[in-house]
Design a protein around this nucleic acid. Structure first.
Length: 579
RNA sequence: GCGCCCGUAGCUCAGAUGGAUAGAGCAACGGACUUCUAAUCCGUAGGUCACAGGUUCGAAUCCUGUCGGGCGUGCCA
């Protein structure tokens, strides 16, 4: 059944009806703060520090709160309430966006936003989305986000999964804040682990030919290597020799691992702009970096063997010196890492984000210290941001599952997604936790929870709106353009609550982006979904007997849909039209 | 030993630069489907914010110490 809407008042003159041009949430807060600051400076003839306007913690007080009167009390030698009164006077008139200002408690200033402003905002979101109001901190700037970067020696595990989801969400969050983001995976194809992998492959290959070889110490034992061995035999025949054709084994294993990892990432819908191969850096870029360090006298030769080279980390506020080149001329992992980071910085990004597991703490601090010496500490500290996420403890039926790639005893990303049953659910669960918080992921609980998972709560709100919109023809054309008309109809508490919640979204996205904390997004989503479900339950949207109300509520629904959709997009979680 | 992270409701976790009565989801209990999707809503219950000091108008948040857990402290990555 489709409802026809008719006899709507024209609102083509809505632009002229506005008293003020629409301000963004940020502009309003800035203007209010500066008005208050100016009033204080004039009244007390003192330098007044920036006044901060924050969202109210408790909505019964209003929409915005300011507590600046209290810290100022000492300096101005007045009571906080007197100071707050001066601030209140400066904004209680002259701002069409402000409905009410009150002074409560010891000296809190509480501001209630006007319905007209909220309606204006809602109209704008319904027609142009929430994105236009996100402070564009990243416009014209570029960011490089490095994540996953797991050794190409096997399938991605649950730990990589957390990092993959986190890195992707951080990238999306930065993009939402206007940044141009490059996603990069550092492909560690030159180290000793690749030799181990090649040898492990050779063991399985020879095994197929009836030749027994010992698995090397620290070798890989995953079942996938047996599969590769079978394919290798099919591709290349039975005549390969170890170690004569070591390079072939190595290359074959590397290619297989790359495909494995790419396929795993596809399960999550994650793509990279570039896989940066460590081997590209060897030897030129690494030698150049060592040369730079040499010129700054930050390296020295080993007293026993001059071919071995040490890095003077102890002179860079780090605990101890480290070897960067072994006697045999090979590099330890720190050296290519340094060369890689040098390369990243030279590419000129405004922001370089590294995402690592917490086991990289020491290494990344060493790399950061070295970069500081080579490029200048200020440059490095202003451009480099490192996110160290804690590990996932995987639990199945109350029992901890040990994870170790090399022992072949681990749960893969693939298995996890398959067991939980949905990449969307996995993404959402991972992204609800802060990166630096430990995380217990109980597979059985995740599956059991599947039915009433928080992600479905949010998706369902979106799907409900889609359902409502299906009841009308061309709902977009019904969007109310006149804020005054909108607010005269949307008078319910739940309707206002939705509008004021949406009004906080742009600044919260921006704050989450600045902090590189995507875990704040699910909170916002849940709040909006909750407000919407409450609204839905209590207000009929499509009402054949009331076109005006229908149009106004549809406008609200369209704004909410757009907001939910943009927020879900940051998490990389699907917004379904139907459930 | 030393370095980094963590400790908030029965469980899993939020609490942006210190603010008013510490929140949500699951789990528990009681209600609501003749309706645009009940995968929902409304209500109840649940807390010494690990512990002890300190800083100040005010602390889950900052500082110190203690206890407990994770990771690191490899010429593995």
């Amino acid at each position: 059944m489709t409802l026809q809407i008719r006899n709507l008042k024209t609102d083509q003159n809505w632009k002229q009806m506005r008293s003020l041009p629409l301000r963004s949430p940020l502009q309003i807060r800035t203007e209010l703060a500066s008005a208050m600051q100016k009033a204080l400076a004039e009244k007390f003839q003192e330098d007044i520090p920036d006044v901060e306007i924050l969202p109210s913690r408790n909505l019964s007080f209003g929409d915005l709160a300011c507590n600046s009167a209290m810290p100022l009390a000492g300096k101005l030698k007045r009571s906080p309430r007197d100071i707050a009164a001066v601030m209140a006077d400066s904004v209680s008139s002259g701002f069409s966006q402000v409905e009410k200002v009150s002074i409560d408690g010891p000296g809190f200033l509480n501001i209630t936003l006007s319905g007209e402003y909220l309606a204006e905002f809602t109209v704008a979101v319904a027609s142009g989305g929430i994105g236009q109001f996100i402070p564009s901190q990243g416009t014209g700037k570029t960011a490089l986000v490095e994540f996953v970067s797991s050794n190409p020696t096997g399938p991605l595990t649950v730990g990589h999964c957390r990092q993959a989801v986190l890195g992707d969400a951080v990238s999306r969050l930065l993009e939402a804040a206007g940044w141009t983001v490059q996603r990069e995976y550092y492909f560690n194809d030159a180290g000793r682990q690749m030799d181990k992998l090649a040898e492990s492959l050779a063991v399985r290959y020879m095994g197929l030919l009836g030749v027994s070889m010992d698995i090397p110490e620290g070798g890989y034992q995953g079942g996938y290597i047996k599969e590769w061995a079978g394919e290798l035999r099919k591709d290349k025949g039975d005549l390969l020799k170890w170690p004569d054709e070591k390079d072939l084994f190595r290359e074959y294993a590397g290619e297989k691992a790359f495909v494995l990892i790419s396929d795993d990432l596809k399960l999550l819908g994650i793509t990279f702009d570039r896989f940066f191969a460590e081997s590209e850096l060897i030897p030129d870029a690494v030698e150049e970096a060592i040369g730079l360090l040499r010129r700054k006298e930050l390296v020295y030769e080993d007293s026993d063997d001059p071919r071995k080279i040490w890095l003077k980390l102890s002179e860079m506020d780090r605990p101890e010196d480290r070897v960067i080149m072994r006697e045999d001329g090979t590099y330890t992992y720190r050296m290519p890492d340094i060369a890689y980071h040098l390369n990243k910085f030279r590419r000129g990004y405004d922001l370089v984000v590294d995402i690592f597991g917490s086991d990289h703490i020491d290494t990344c601090k060493d790399v950061e210290a070295v970069l500081g010496e080579l490029l200048g500490k200020d440059d490095v500290s202003s451009r480099l941001r490192t996110i160290l996420h804690q590990f996932v403890t995987l639990v199945r039926g109350g029992e901890k599952v040990k994870m170790s790639t090399r022992a072949g005893n681990y749960v893969t990303l693939r298995e996890m997604i398959s067991e939980v049953g949905s990449a969307n659910v996995v993404r959402y669960i991972f992204l609800t936790r802060r990166a630096e918080a430990h995380m217990d992921f109980d597979l059985e609980a995740a599956v059991a929870e599947n039915e009433d998972n928080p992600v479905f709560y949010v998706q369902y709100a979106f799907a409900r709106i889609a359902g409502i919109l299906r009841k009308t023809t061309d709902p977009e054309s019904l969007v109310v353009r006149d804020p005054g008309r909108l607010i005269s109809i949307l008078t319910g508490e739940r309707e206002r609550d939705l509008m004021r919640l949406m009004e906080t979204v742009p600044l919260r996205i921006s704050a989450a982006a600045s902090a590189l904390e995507p875990h704040r997004i699910p909170d916002i989503l849940a709040e909006i979904a909750r407000a919407f479900h409450g609204f839905y339950q209590h207000h009929r949207v499509v009402d054949p007997d009331n076109d005006e109300t229908t149009a106004a509520r549809l406008t609200l629904c369209i704004a909410v849909r757009s907001t939910l959709s943009d927020l879900l997009k940051i998490l990389g979680v699907h917004a379904p039209e139907k459930m």
